[in-house]
Design a protein around this nucleic acid. Sequence first.
DNA 1: ACCCTAAGCGGACCGTGGTCCAGTTAGCGT
DNA 2: ACGCTAACTGGACCACGGTCCGCTTAGGGT
Lengths: 198, 198
Amino acid sequence: MLDLLSAESVSAGKRADAVRNRARLLEAAAELVAERGAANLTMDAVATAACVGKGTVFRRFGDREGLLLALLNHSEEQFQEAMLTGPPPLGPGAEAGQRLHAYGPARLHHENASIDLYLAAEPGPLRRYLVPAYGVHLTHIRMLLRQVGVDGDIELLAHMLLRSLDTASLHHLVCQRGLPVERLEAGWHDLVTRLTGH
Amino acid sequence: MLDLLSAESVSAGKRADAVRNRARLLEAAAELVAERGAANLTMDAVATAACVGKGTVFRRFGDREGLLLALLNHSEEQFQEAMLTGPPPLGPGAEAGQRLHAYGPARLHHENASIDLYLAAEPGPLRRYLVPAYGVHLTHIRMLLRQVGVDGDIELLAHMLLRSLDTASLHHLVCQRGLPVERLEAGWHDLVTRLTGH
DNA sequence: ACCCTAAGCGGACCGTGGTCCAGTTAGCGT
DNA sequence: ACGCTAACTGGACCACGGTCCGCTTAGGGT
């Protein structure tokens, strides 16, 4: 089972019962997602399964998107850790160009592994690029681009590279059009090569 | 006022009252959007304003997304016409590289002009790349890429170029981060140049 | 041990998207 | 002119997301 009581950052300074409820809710939600699919997760069901009022669910997570993002948080943290402090070529230790090349496939596989959760958790268009996770990835790519010595509008290039890995289009290309993931990987390498010259 | 009775493709073979109702609904919806914003458009309100039952609205447009997409259809058709049969450099007559360069800024301005409608009408992640309009644009870009003689995975390149113009990120960069549209235009030109070598 | 209060809780309530089906009608074939 | 039928209609109905507010309680202060 996941360690739902970790992430002290979100539980610091809260009352013990609130922390307990948060954990119960995430646990119940994870179970419901596992048995009925992320798309069919209802807030009522989560509240009921956790023996808690619906108000509590909303108080804790803000809205449905927030709950789903919280569910994703654990695996997202794992990925971020791999990319920020893990072994090369994704993590530090390899040269920037290699890390950039490694990022795409790693990300594709990561998303692909829990694609329905990622799809269900996609924030609306006004929030999509404001979620903290996006900022982390953006900063990372920007850094690699700078290190690799690309000239041009690094900000925009980073945005665009990230967008080419976005969950909805991954799903479209792989699940709806049947392209093999390898082709997307090749596309990423090609793109990185064309943009950075490496 | 818009010519809501045109687009015979959608009214062909339908009963006269159905066609009339469709037009009434679109007219009412357009008015409500104008006075309350696309985000606050409710299906009930549209039905009431058009003096029609709610069931009729759903029968005609499937769901809220469908209604908003139908509202967008008129301006979308205008853009497609400009790009398929209009004057150069966007339309035919210019060489492919120039048309490709012209596409980005044209599209950015087009979306920017009705950005809240585009944002409100954004289909969910499972539908986003299946809407007909996306197919048209994709085919267009693919054709230009082929004409310009790019080697590589044209399919993927086209997808990625289109994604770099997507409404949500346009909104993010311009409205949420304050980048001037000119910078996005420059980014497009830079991107096209790097990818095609022209 | 007791109180006080800020924080948390829960479930009734509301608005909206979406479904359904019994009743109505356009418009064709005769 | 007159059915006949397939299509359309409308509004009652349902499920779900999200809000609100009166009640409860944890847990520090005395």
